[in-house]
Amino acid sequence: MPRIPEVTLANPRADRVKQVRALSGRPARSRHGQFLVEGPQGVREAVRHAAGDVRDVYLTPQAAERYGEILAAAREAGLFVHVATPEVLAAMSPDAQGVLAVARTRETALGDALDRVRAASPASPLLVAVLSNVRDPGNAGTVVRASDAAGADLVVLAGESVDVHNPKVVRSTAGSLFHLPVVTGVPLPDAVRALRAAGCTVLAADGAGEDDLDDLLDVAGPAAARGAGTPDLAASTAWIFGNEAWGLPAPDRALADAVVRVPIRGRAESLNLATAATVCLYASSRAQR
């Protein structure tokens, strides 16, 4: 068990506390190039996998004792660790659960991210999730988490999608934000062009799609007998997922090589965005492996 440092922050009205709390808003995040990571799971993964981007770590004495591995990893990485009273952590963020970090935002160009992924695994098919105008923070974060779990290489938040550093998005990723590259601020047509140039078949997920996901799984792989124009889920694939309320408009669907529906066997009208994205990503993951 690492030695617990003494409390150094006890005033919930201190300027530092106000500055950290302000990062819950987009103006402060944009101005300072920093964002909040709230809760033990997110902070643990940030310290383990993106320590170079972590500016400060804050813990209550109780959290420092309970999550000794976070304290030890932060110290090993040479990070600034501050022990604060529960009142200070609550003032910084009501969702901190006694553990909070401030991290630097890092803008990544789509081309650079694709180059790094290709260099790391040149022989493996790509799997990419593209969120187009997805506004709900919980959905966006859950798709990042599902992409990570399915072994995807990259997530792109295109168009007017939610800020990936929104605290609700960061919490919803459960630390996956620090496991794979997430590119933001790319117009959807530009993202499609770059992904197609990288060798990806671009598939739009939509309930009115002509291609059935299960049928594509049945004929996935190099030895399968597919009809002309039928996409191969075993090949490099980029999935486009649309807005929660209105899905993908016709111009966005037209950018894709095919429009694919997730089969619904029961009486549910539809699947929500995050669930549909998870099903599609795992279908590709299964076919590619």
Rank of each mutant, 00 (worst) to 15 (best):
P94Y: 04
F80A: 14
F80P: 10
E38G: 08
P86W: 08
L100S: 13
R66M: 14
E87D: 13
L110M: 09
P86F: 03
A51Y: 12
S93M: 08
E38D: 10
F80C: 11
A63M: 10
V57S: 00
E76R: 15
H49C: 07
V88W: 11
Y67M: 07
V54K: 01
Y67G: 08
E69A: 09
P86E: 09
A74L: 09
G98K: 08
R106Q: 15
A77G: 06
A84M: 04
L79R: 00
P40V: 12
M92F: 06
E69K: 02
V43C: 09
R48P: 01
I70L: 00
L79G: 07
Q97F: 10
M92I: 03
R44I: 00
I70E: 06
A96D: 07
A90R: 14
V37T: 04
S93E: 09
L36T: 00
R104Q: 12
V81F: 06
R48W: 10
P94M: 06
A90Q: 14
M92L: 02
A51H: 14
V83S: 00
V99M: 07
R75C: 03
A101C: 12
A103N: 09
R66L: 15
L59Y: 05
I70M: 00
T85S: 14
V99I: 12
V88F: 02
P61K: 05
G68C: 03
P40R: 12
D53A: 15
R66T: 15
M92W: 06
G98T: 12
E76S: 14
G68V: 11
G78C: 07
V47K: 05
P94T: 08
R104A: 15
H82Q: 13
V37L: 09
M92A: 07
A46V: 09
Q97G: 01
Y58A: 02
T85I: 04
R66C: 01
I70G: 08
T108L: 15
A73I: 02
G68I: 00
Q62P: 04
P86Q: 07
L110N: 10
E45I: 11
A51E: 14
F80K: 13
Q41N: 03
Y67F: 15
V102H: 11
L71V: 06
H49F: 13
T105R: 15
R44P: 01
H49L: 15
P86K: 03
T105F: 07
A109M: 13
D95N: 13
A72I: 02
A46N: 04
Q97A: 10
R44N: 12
A73S: 13
Y58H: 14
L36P: 04
T105K: 13
M92S: 04
L71T: 05
L36F: 09
A46H: 10
R44V: 01
R55E: 10
Y58P: 02
V102T: 11
A72E: 14
A77F: 02
A77T: 01
L71P: 11
A103K: 11
L110I: 13
T108M: 15
A51F: 10
V47F: 10
T60G: 03
V57Y: 02
A84I: 04
P94C: 05
E107C: 05
A46E: 11
R104L: 15
T60H: 00
